[in-house]
Amino acid sequence: MTATDIATTVRTCLREVAPEADLDALPADADLREELFLDSLDFLRLVELLSERTGHRIDEEDYPHLESVNSTVAFLSRVG
């Protein structure tokens, strides 16, 4: 997957977790949990979707990498 593919996947997954959020207005470096009001279950769902769609294992230790759209894309590109 290219970085662009990954970025698209990340936004697709976010849209499923927070369907009412205006993702187009979400800055790429904004804190996802804060900006989208994700609770721990939402976040787990996001991890689950990202893991499924990209085929990467995401451990709990990796969660801090999933802070913003940018950092998530960077992390998934790195492990890919």
Binding site: S40, L41, L44, V47, E48, S51, I58, D59, E60
Partner: peptide, 17 residues
């Protein structure tokens, strides 16, 4: 919890709540 979740795929993980 960390020890327990480490071994598990995402859908099996448990949140502290």
């Amino acid at each position: 919890l960390r020890e327990r979740n480490r071994a598990l795929p995402v859908p099996e993980r448990i949140v502290p709540a």
